[in-house]
Write a protein that binds this DNA or RNA. Structure first.
Lengths: 128, 128
DNA sequence: TCAGTCACTTGCGTTTCGCAAGTTATGGTA
DNA sequence: TACCATAACTTGCGAAACGCAAGTGACTGA
């Protein structure tokens, strides 16, 4: 099984086209994925933290998006404790690279949706 | 009927939250809307021009998106000829304001999807 | 032993998507 | 005046995605 934009007999094969915007939309083009990224940028790491954001993402949608983000290399999952095992999610360098995109969206959004406000970073307890 | 983020008894009412990113996604968060904006930025104006882009947007989806973009104030529609009447679509100032968002997406997209390339502007015959 | 937490998974009805075909209005050609 | 073509949509309908609610399994602390 080939991924999107992978080499195939010397010719690139894209899902829809060779436009960078199109390919970004094939990964991030829905109402939830970029909000998960936003939460990660704000410092959230755990499943329950994502579900407790004000948009109230459904549990199955969140699981699906985290899986896809991992597959796309934007996010890594790893256990931060055993007994019982608990996982946390972190942005990869590729994922961090989306910050300028989020910035541009926030600038435009704050200007055109009166009353909206950038969300604050969240704090984290130090790991044991 | 109130739009998103409209005033209601002194308190803002947002569809999902007061996050600017969330509100932008409620307007642009799907696989097609931003591609229509891209085409407009590239100089496309007419229905058939949008349907002839390499992503091959379906006719009903295009009609739906153009309607929503007009409702959101990102695009204007006007007749450029009569007998028969023909329409063209143009970005408003609000719509033009999305250029930095598209730029940031292109930068990230070109970096992470090898083989993708920014599409060139299209030329237009002079009216009259 | 029994409620509670975390990180999910499953069921299922509702909504949205998207391919294909049809519609309306008009102009050009023979 | 019949016929073909073009522009800008609209309609039908099967498939996919969404999202609410409930369930699961591993383990902790009381």
């Amino acid at each position: 099984m080939l991924g999107d934009g992978e080499q195939m007999g010397g010719k690139m094969k894209f899902k829809r086209s060779s436009c960078p915007i199109t390919n970004v939309l094939d990964t991030l083009g829905d109402k939830w994925t970029l909000l998960v990224i936003r939460d990660l940028v704000l410092g959230k790491r755990r499943y329950q933290e994502f579900t407790s954001s004000p948009e109230k993402i459904a549990s199955n949608i969140l699981a699906d998006r985290l899986k896809k983000l991992e597959t796309s290399g934007l996010v890594t999952r790893h256990a931060y404790q055993r007994n019982p095992v608990r996982y946390e999610y972190l942005l990869t360098e590729k994922g961090e690279g989306l910050k300028p995109v989020l910035e541009a969206i926030i600038v435009w959004g704050k200007k055109h949706y009166p009353g909206t406000k950038r969300f604050p970073r969240v704090a984290h307890a130090k790991e044991g």
